[in-house]
Design a binder for these strands. Structure first.
Length: 211
DNA sequence: ATCCCGAGGG
DNA sequence: CCCTCTGGAT
C-alpha cells in the first residue's frame, strides 16, 4: 500500500461517510467512557439500549457507585460479559473519584490505569472525546485493515502502527470512525458488500467479490 | 457456528 | 501465548 492509494481511499470514504462519529449515545465524556467499556464484544445498539435506561438514573461516578454491583448488573444484563464489566465499571468510578477528582483523565497512561480500560478503549476516548489523532483498532478496523491492505498485522497493535504510518495526516482524526463505519456497514465480516464498496478497485482483499 | 467498537488473568 | 468472560443477532 502506497501513500497515493491510501489518500484516495480516505478521500472516497470521507465522501461516502460524511459524518464519521461514534454511534454510542452519550452526553458527556464520562458517559462515553462507560459506554465504550460496555461495548467490548457487544454491539453498539445493545449498549445504547442499556445506557438509555442507566444514564437517566446514574450518569456520574458517584451515582453509579451508589447502584452497587447488583444494581448496575440489572441495567447491563443484556450485554455480553456483563459481570466483569459491572465490576470494572464500579472500580473505574471509584478510581475516577479517588485519583482523578471525578473527571475522566486525558492521557493514555491514566486512562489505561482504569479497570476495564485497555489500549483500544483509551484510544477511543482520546480520539472521540479529546480530538487526538489516535486509531483504536477494534474488530472492524482489524478486519478492514487486513483486507484492504491499509494495515496488515496479526495483532491489533501491529495494525494500529501500520495505519498510523499510512493514513494521511489530514484524515488521521476521522480515520478511526471512517474505518469502523466502513467495516460495520460495508466491509462486514461474513458477506462483505463489495458491490456497494466505494474503494473496491483499490482493495487488496483476495476474497473480494468483483462485480 | 460466528461475530459484536476487548480486557485481565494465568 | 492462551483462556475466560457472556448475551443477542445473524
Amino acid at each position: 500500500m502506497n501513500k497515493e492509494k491510501s489518500e484516495e481511499i480516505f478521500r472516497r470514504l470521507s465522501i461516502a461517510i460524511p459524518a464519521p462519529k461514534t454511534e454510542l449515545n452519550h452526553n458527556s465524556v464520562f458517559e462515553l467512557l462507560i459506554a465504550v467499556i460496555l461495548s467490548a464484544q457487544a454491539t453498539d445498539k445493545g449498549v445504547n439500549i442499556a445506557t438509555a435506561k442507566l444514564y437517566p438514573v446514574a450518569n456520574t461516578p458517584s451515582a453509579i457507585l451508589a447502584l452497587g454491583i447488583e444494581g448496575l448488573e440489572r441495567y447491563i444484563k443484556t450485554i455480553g460479559l456483563y459481570h466483569s464489566k459491572a465490576k470494572n465499571v464500579l472500580a473505574t468510578c471509584e478510581r475516577l473519584i479517588e485519583v482523578y477528582g471525578g473527571e475522566v483523565p486525558r492521557t493514555r497512561e491514566a486512562l489505561e490505569s482504569l479497570p476495564g480500560v485497555g489500549r483500544k478503549t483509551a484510544n477511543v476516548i482520546l480520539n472521540t472525546a479529546f480530538g487526538e489523532p489516535t486509531i483504536a483498532v477494534d474488530t472492524h478496523i482489524f478486519r478492514v485493515g487486513n483486507r484492504t491492505g491499509l494495515g496488515r498485522g496479526k495483532t491489533p497493535l501491529a495494525v494500529e502502527n501500520k495505519l498510523m504510518k499510512i493514513v494521511p495526516k489530514a484524515y488521521m482524526k476521522d480515520a478511526h470512525h471512517l474505518l469502523i463505519l466502513h467495516g460495520r456497514y460495508t466491509c462486514v465480516a461474513r458477506k462483505p458488500k463489495c458491490d456497494e464498496c466505494v474503494i473496491l478497485d483499490l482493495c487488496e482483499f483476495k476474497g473480494k467479490v468483483v462485480a
